[in-house]
Structures are given as structure tokens and as C-alpha cells.
Simulated scan of single mutants.
Amino acid sequence: MTVAETDDALIDWTIFAEARAELGANFVRILGYFREDGAKSVARIEEAMRAGDATAMVLPAHTLKGESTQFGAELLGTLAETIEVIARGCVETHDAPEQALEHVVNLRPVFQRTLELLERETNPLVERRPAFGRRPLLAGGGFERD
């Protein structure tokens, strides 16, 4: 899988656009909370993994799952959900969360790349490709003519 294909799988841009429209002026502030809370959740999950503490994984994985899916960060949300499900199963069976290791190892790079994409999309200084089906604006603000 190429980097572009991986990036395409990270964000559901339709959900992202819907969240942006719904949150309006609060969007950037809430995205900032996601950045901060997400980093804390990832660190807590990693710490719990190192300690073999499945119970300590559940809440940060659950939180990260919910916040990720709010912004259309589907791959990150799915990864967090997988960790949460494994951790809950381990709590019930009183096992160490060893089977979550691969997912936990992938969590930070997926989180970081997801943030890069979300921040690139919300940065007003970044030039964007025209949306599918739309003609690009000309320098004077008008649309390109056929």
C-alpha cells in the first residue's frame, strides 16, 4: 500500500466535513482538544501496555475511539476500538493484554499521521486541490471557463 493509499484510508473526509460544518466556529478549538487528549490517550495506552495492565487501557482507548470517529479519523478509531475490545476481554479473563501489542505499536504513528492530515486540512495557508466536480477558482475569484 502506498503512502497516498494509506492517507486516503485514514480520514473519511465526508464525516470530517460534516463535523466541521456542525461545530462551526468551535471546530478548531475542539480539534485542539482532540490533539491534546489524543496524545494523552495514546501515552496512557502505551504505559498500560508496558505495565501489562488491561484495565488501564480501556478508558483511554474508548475515549480515543470516540474522539477519532467524531472527526472522521476512521482508521485511528478502529485501531482504538480494537485495543479497547482486547483490553475489555483481558479484564474479564484476568489476562495480560499481550494480543494488543501490535495494535498499540501502530497507534502512535497512525495518530500522528492523522493529526498531520487534519491540521493540513484546517490550515488556512495550505493550498488545496479543487474538490471533485468543482472547477478551480481563477486568480480574480471567478470560475474557469470551458
Rank of each mutant, 00 (worst) to 15 (best):
T2I: 11
V3L: 15
A4K: 12
E5N: 12
E5P: 03
E5V: 08
T6L: 10
D7R: 02
D7P: 00
D8N: 13
D8Y: 04
D8L: 09
D8P: 02
A9V: 12
A9P: 04
L10K: 10
D12L: 04
D12I: 05
W13E: 11
W13S: 09
W13T: 11
T14R: 15
T14E: 15
T14M: 07
F16Q: 03
A17D: 14
E18I: 12
A19W: 04
R20G: 00
L23G: 06
L23Q: 10
L23C: 11
N26C: 11
F27E: 02
V28E: 15
I30H: 01
G32L: 07
Y33N: 14
Y33L: 13
Y33K: 14
F34V: 02
F34G: 08
R35P: 04
E36M: 11
D37F: 08
G38K: 02
K40Y: 05
S41G: 07
S41I: 02
S41F: 05
V42R: 06
V42T: 12
R44Q: 12
R44L: 07
I45W: 00
I45N: 00
E46D: 09
E46C: 06
E46H: 11
A48L: 10
D53I: 09
A54T: 03
A54F: 01
M57V: 07
M57P: 03
V58D: 08
V58N: 06
L59W: 14
P60N: 13
H62W: 13
H62V: 00
L64Q: 06
L64G: 00
K65N: 07
K65G: 00
K65H: 08
G66M: 06
G66I: 03
E67Y: 07
T69E: 07
T69R: 13
T69P: 00
Q70K: 12
Q70W: 08
A73N: 04
A73Y: 02
E74G: 03
L76W: 03
L76S: 02
G77F: 05
T78K: 15
L79S: 13
L79T: 05
A80T: 00
T82Q: 14
T82M: 09
I83Q: 03
E84D: 10
E84C: 01
V85N: 13
I86H: 11
G89I: 03
V91R: 12
E92A: 15
T93E: 10
H94D: 15
D95G: 09
A96D: 11
A96P: 06
Q99Y: 05
L101H: 15
L101Y: 12
L101N: 15
E102V: 14
E102P: 05
H103N: 13
V104M: 02
V104H: 00
V104W: 01
V105F: 09
V105E: 14
L107E: 00
L107Y: 01
L107F: 04
R108F: 01
P109N: 14
Q112P: 02
R113L: 02
R113E: 05
T114W: 02
T114M: 07
T114P: 00
L115F: 13
E116C: 06
E116V: 00
L117E: 05
L117F: 01
E119K: 09
R120K: 13
E121S: 08
N123M: 07
P124H: 09
R128Q: 13
R128G: 10
A131F: 07
A131G: 03
R134A: 11
R134P: 00
R134M: 08
P136Q: 10
P136V: 04
L137G: 06
L138A: 11
L138W: 06
A139C: 06
G140S: 12
G140T: 06
G142Q: 15
G142D: 14
F143G: 11
